[in-house]
Design a protein around this nucleic acid. Structure first.
Lengths: 131, 131
DNA sequence: TTATCTGCAAACATTTTGCAGCGAG
DNA sequence: CTCGCTGCAAAATGTTTGCAGATAA
C-alpha cells in the first residue's frame, strides 16, 4: 500500500535531518541539494501521505504556507511558534485538553475537537529588535 | 491619507456586523449580498490597510486562508461550533488566556497571541443522528 | 505482472499588482 | 483640481490533479 521509492526515501531523509518545520519548497530544495532529483508534486504528495499517516506534523506559517516536520510525539499536541524566526516549541497542552472537554460537556456538545496554536516573539528575536 | 469611499464604508459595515473571523471572499459576498458592488481586490486592499492600521485582526484558518475580524478592545473570546448545524456558542476562555500567557512566559516568548476554537456536535444534532 | 508512484504541465485558489479612469476632499 | 481609490484583468504564489510512462513488490 505504500511503496518505498527512491524519491520517498530522499524526502524522508531530509525530513529526518531537519529539526524545524519546513515548507514543501524548502524540502524540495534540500532534496535536490543532496543531488537527488525529485519533483515538487511528489514532495507534496509524500507530505500528504505522511500527514494522514500521523508521521508528520503540519501547520501554517504567517504567510499561510504549509510547513512540515516529523512528528516527535504521536499524541495530539500544540505548538508555540516564533513569529520572526519561525522556531517552534512543542507544548504540553494538558490544560487545553481538559478545558476543551469540560467546555464541551457544559454546553452538551459531544465529539469535541479543537485547534490551538500560540504565536509570539522568542527571547532571541525580541533582543534583536532592540538594536 | 485615507479616503472614505462608498466601497470602504460597505466593507467596514459588514465587518462591524460580524462577530466572527471572515475570509476576504466571505466579506466580498456579504457586501454584495447587501446590494453594494465592490471588487474583490478592493476588499483585500481595504483589509491590508486596516490590518496595518491596527483596526483589524488577521489569522489563518486550517486551509491557509486569511481571515479578518474587527479588533475588539475588550477581551477576545472563543467559540464552540457545531459541526452539523453550524450554531456557535461563545465560551468563557479565561482559562486559555491564562494558559497562553503562562506557557509563553515559561518559554520566554513575548507578545503572545493565540488561536483556539472548539468543534463538536451539539445536543440537538446528536439526537437527530440517532433517528 | 500490475497497482502504485513519479514527473510534468496544466488546473486551481488565493492574493497581489499594473493601469486607466473615477471621485473624495 | 489632484492624488488616492477602484475595477478589471493579468500575474504571482502555493498547492492539487490528470495522464502517460516508470517501477517496486
Amino acid at each position: 500500500m505504500q511503496r518505498m521509492t527512491r524519491q520517498r526515501a530522499a524526502v524522508v531523509e531530509v525530513l529526518a535531518d531537519s529539526e524545524e518545520f519546513r515548507t514543501a519548497q524548502e524540502l524540495h530544495d534540500m532534496v535536490r541539494g543532496q543531488g537527488h532529483s525529485v519533483g515538487l508534486a511528489t514532495v507534496y504528495r509524500t507530505m500528504q501521505a505522511m500527514v494522514s499517516a500521523g508521521e508528520v506534523d503540519v501547520l501554517r506559517n504567517a504567510e499561510g504556507e504549509a510547513m512540515y516536520r516529523r512528528c516527535e510525539r504521536t499524541e495530539h499536541h500544540h505548538h508555540l511558534l516564533c513569529r520572526d524566526c519561525g522556531r517552534t516549541e512543542e507544548i504540553d497542552a494538558a490544560l487545553v485538553e481538559q478545558w476543551a472537554e469540560s467546555v464541551g460537556r457544559a454546553h452538551r456538545f459531544s465529539n469535541i475537537e479543537h485547534t490551538a496554536e500560540l504565536f509570539g516573539t522568542c527571547a532571541d528575536c525580541a533582543a534583536d529588535e532592540d538594536s
